[in-house]
């Protein structure tokens, strides 16, 4: 007997939650306990009084599983609202990465040229290295990192995705 996997879709979920002890463990644990995927998870408080945090989760699964994930998250006592940005309609998503590249000569010049194309900023430099700051969609960051890998990538730090629905309304 072999175990079959189902086809998955990527979804970006945006949650507002009460900013209380254990909330992150509660959410991350729900994903592990029920066997859901987390591709990335970001969290920071978003109100003046630090009472509410926004958590953005990139997950993947078949439609039925995504629906369950949302229902299960919604049922946690400190969770205020769960929006599936992917379903709710046009939205902006960004992540930030710091990308360290080392090299000399032609590689170093190529790195700067590519950074310019991707609108990445140099935030640290030595004679033999740069750290670039790049923001954009996951795909754009992936592409940038992929190119750098060929010309001296040393290490990468990424924030994971945050996202908001387009337009004037709060969601």
């Amino acid at each position: 007997m072999h175990i079959q996997e189902e086809l998955s879709q990527r979804h970006v979920l945006s949650l507002t939650v009460s900013n209380e002890a254990g909330i992150l463990a509660r959410i991350a644990g729900l994903f592990t306990a029920r066997g859901y995927n987390i591709d990335s998870l970001t969290v920071a408080d978003i109100t003046d009084d630090h009472a509410i945090s926004r958590i953005t989760i990139v997950t993947s699964g078949p439609p039925k599983v995504i629906d369950q994930i949302i229902a299960q998250l919604d049922r946690l006592v400190p969770v205020h609202k769960v929006i599936d940005l992917t379903e709710a309609g046009p939205f902006v998503e960004r992540e930030l990465a710091l990308v360290k590249v080392a090299g000399v000569g032609e590689d170093r010049i190529e790195a700067l040229r590519l950074a310019d194309v991707f609108r990445a900023k140099v935030v640290d430099t030595t004679i033999e290295s740069f750290i670039f700051e790049i923001t954009g969609t996951t795909e754009k960051v992936d592409n940038f990192v992929g190119l750098m890998r060929q010309i001296g990538l040393v290490e990468v730090g990424r924030t994971g995705v945050v996202g908001l629905i387009r337009g004037k309304e709060a969601n």
Binding site: K64, D67, Q68, A71, Q72, D74, R75
Partner: peptide
């Protein structure tokens, strides 16, 4: 009463 029970197993 629990929305997460609905469509969990059977649509």
């Amino acid at each position: 009463i629990d929305r997460s029970s609905i469509n969990k197993i059977v649509d």
